[in-house]
Nucleic acid binder design. Structure first.
Lengths: 252, 252
DNA sequence: CGGACCATTGACCATAGTCAACCGCCGTGG
DNA sequence: CCACGGCGGTTGACTATGGTCAATGGTCCG
């Protein structure tokens, strides 16, 4: 992409129509790049951010710190995501945002971003819509973490991540990066480390999916969707991302 | 209130500043009232709503239908809430909205509502902010349903409901309506009916809270907050709702 | 009175948590 | 070069929380 800001354009176009003037407005937003080390925080719970974060490379996560000591990861974010869009209109962060591996983010100051949404309301609506899809993902996480077996939760998570990676263009045929330790998988799905290990073993035996050292490999998409009780409609895509057919009917 | 639409004004003012023109614009929105029977759906999963719902009286809930058969309740809504504000900018509902008891809602057509947000951007931002707080509540639900004991989840839920009821002005000193069966509490917190019964018994013994036949009674707010690991900051209030002191130090 | 719905309780079972040992890999430093 | 330590993953034994199934009781209402 010629401009780093085009990552935002591309992302918003996954669900919204942007006029040339909208695109031009986004491109002209002054932006600053920042590199993050693994586990580094971009925003901490309680902060009052003045700039919005856009993921360029790598993976970020939102989390609640738990009084007991651990974390509850809330969501994972890849290229194009704006993991703190809420900071635009809520004063204090109720959660933190950290990098999971080496990552690069774009920082867009609130002042100019808000000004743009005033000048070009369709951009505002697109970002609003982005935050609404975000909320839909949270709702799905409630359902996932509440009423399903651990194996199903894992499968569902893998479905979501692969599907979203396809949409953002950061998956290659049948695989995508997923830089999480099993401990972190546990903190995401509400389970302990040994439980994750056991559920992973069970999943592996289905030959639907492979996961090790930060890489997710889809072997049988149809079976994984079945295992994960995955229904993509909550992600509100305008069109199906390309690439699903590659792994749909490969039997293991 | 002179106008039913003032419920919306009041709600938005919990977190946003509205000018006289903003308020006037909201008041003039054409609105239709609708009464709901207990368990009646206002919106079904998959619908393409053309009007937004505002709760006037009673309690509504959002839910995912589960393939297995049951429901996962996602959130509870009281006076002033807009449980489907997302319908403004997402075409299909990824979840349903139903009444939990006899309820009255206001229906605001999307066309006029969107037109208002264009004419008066600050109203748009206020509603946007409302949806962002919504998302924060979902995040908290993820944490609540994932990493806590059932007793803690219950206590947390009670804290949130009482706190929000105070903010919306539909709680009286130390108590509020909560028209849920224990089965529904289970479908909200990701637990089975007998588990809820047992956790309720344990909670009752703490003398912090009383719950029966749809009525929630706070006996010791401080203790309940402690039991529920409740930190109100995710609700993003501008000011503390009145009424907490009434029940803060009453020992049981 | 009978039925529907909800709450309660008990017995039993399954899933997942806890604790602990151990392995394999990798980077560091003697 | 190899020893060591740290981290992440795996496994096992035991425990505990919660699920399932089933029976019972209470209340409201037709």
């Amino acid at each position: 992409m010629r401009f780093p800001n085009d990552v935002v354009v591309r992302k918003l176009q996954e669900h919204s129509n942007l006029s040339d003037a909208d695109i031009e407005g986004i491109r002209r937003l002054p932006a600053r790049e920042r590199r993050l080390m693994p586990a580094e925080d971009v925003i901490r719970q309680g902060d009052r951010p003045t700039a919005a974060v856009v993921v360029l490379e790598g993976m970020l996560a939102r989390y609640h710190g738990r009084r007991a000591g651990g974390r509850q990861y809330l969501s994972l974010h890849i290229r194009g995501d704006m993991p703190d869009a809420q900071g635009l209109f809520l004063d204090r962060m109720d959660h933190g945002v950290c990098a999971l591996d080496h990552a690069t983010v774009l920082l867009l100051r609130h002042r100019e971003l808000v000004a743009l949404t005033t000048r070009r309301p369709s951009v505002g609506i697109a970002i609003w819509r982005e935050t609404l899809i975000d909320a839909a993902i949270f709702r799905e996480a409630i359902t996932n973490n509440s009423g399903r077996t651990l194996e199903t939760r894992l499968a569902h998570l893998f479905c979501e991540q692969y599907y979203r990676a396809l949409g953002s263009g950061c998956a290659e045929r049948g695989s995508t990066r997923l830089p999480l330790t099993q401990t972190q998988l546990g903190e995401l799905l509400g389970a302990s480390l040994p439980s994750i290990t056991r559920a992973m073993r069970a999943l592996r035996r289905t030959n639907a999916v492979e996961f090790r050292t930060g890489k997710l490999q889809i072997l049988n998409w149809v079976r994984l969707v079945e295992l994960g009780d995955f229904d993509r409609s909550y992600l509100h895509p305008r069109k199906l991302p390309r690439g699903l057919t590659d792994v749909t009917f490969r039997e293991g």
